[in-house]
Amino acid sequence: MSAFSKALNVSASGLRAQAQRLQIVSENVANTDTPGYKRKTVSFASELQRTGLPEVKVDKVTLDRRDGERIYDPGHPMADSDGHYTGSNVDLVIEIADAREAQRSYQANLKMFDQARQMSSGLMDLLRK
């Protein structure tokens, strides 16, 4: 396996991992107003494949243990005897920051992928001459 192929594989694994991270962030944003929803967080791990290449993968998705906001709404179907219910623990500011970080990481991996592809293409052009 050439160095170019290795670079493309490592970059592609980073793209897949960041895409999964963006999916989790979008689920959190979509459930901001869902009572009792727990924010999901992503952690990454580096794995060596059979080929000996490092690859980035989503290690696990965990639930944020913080309590959700206590909301007073006696008319809500989930309200307790005091008129409160537990909302989600999603903070949109944190989710926007996570989305930006994932987007930038995705762009960096995409740039690396493109650079390796261009270098490989340039090498092929040189070999043809």
Rank of each mutant, 00 (worst) to 15 (best):
L8D: 11
K40F: 08
S81I: 13
D82C: 05
G52P: 13
R21W: 03
S11R: 06
A19F: 08
V61I: 09
Q23D: 14
T41Y: 05
Q20W: 11
T86Q: 07
G68N: 05
H84W: 15
I71D: 09
T41V: 10
Y37N: 00
S81L: 15
H84F: 14
G75L: 07
G87S: 01
E69W: 01
N9K: 13
I94D: 12
S81A: 15
K57Q: 01
Q18E: 13
K60R: 15
R104E: 04
N109Q: 00
G87H: 01
I94F: 10
V42N: 07
E47I: 15
E27C: 02
S26Y: 13
L8G: 11
Q20S: 07
L53D: 15
A108T: 04
S46L: 14
K40P: 04
R16W: 03
D59E: 09
G36D: 07
Q49F: 11
K60D: 07
D64N: 13
S13K: 12
Y106K: 03
Y106S: 03
S43D: 04
V10T: 15
Q20A: 13
A99H: 01
Q103D: 02
A102K: 10
K60Y: 05
A45F: 09
S43V: 05
R70V: 03
V56D: 00
A79Y: 06
D67F: 03
H84N: 09
G52E: 10
Q107L: 00
R16P: 00
K60Q: 10
G83C: 09
V42R: 09
R39K: 10
S26I: 02
V10D: 08
K57C: 03
H76D: 07
Y37F: 15
Y106V: 03
V56G: 01
Q49A: 12
N109E: 05
D64F: 04
D59G: 12
Y85N: 02
S81M: 12
T41A: 14
H76L: 09
R66Y: 07
E95C: 10
D98V: 05
A99W: 08
E47Y: 09
R16N: 02
D59R: 15
G36T: 08
V10A: 08
L53S: 06
H76A: 09
E27L: 02
V61L: 08
P35L: 12
K57N: 04
S26G: 13
N9F: 15
T86E: 08
F44I: 06
G36W: 02
D33H: 12
E27V: 08
L53W: 09
H84Y: 14
D73R: 14
R70E: 06
G87K: 01
A19E: 11
R65V: 00
A97H: 02
L8Q: 14
A99D: 00
V90C: 07
I24D: 02
T51E: 15
K40W: 01
K57Y: 05
Y85Q: 03
V58H: 06
Q18N: 07
G87F: 04
D80A: 04
S43I: 02
I24P: 05
Y85L: 01
A12L: 07
D73V: 01
L15W: 02
D82L: 12
L15P: 04
N109I: 01
K40L: 15
G36K: 03
A97P: 06
K38F: 11
Q23Y: 07
T86F: 00
D91S: 12
L22K: 06
S43Q: 11
G52I: 10
I96G: 04
S105G: 15
P54K: 04
D82P: 00
V29R: 05
V29F: 00
V42D: 01
T51Q: 14
T41I: 06
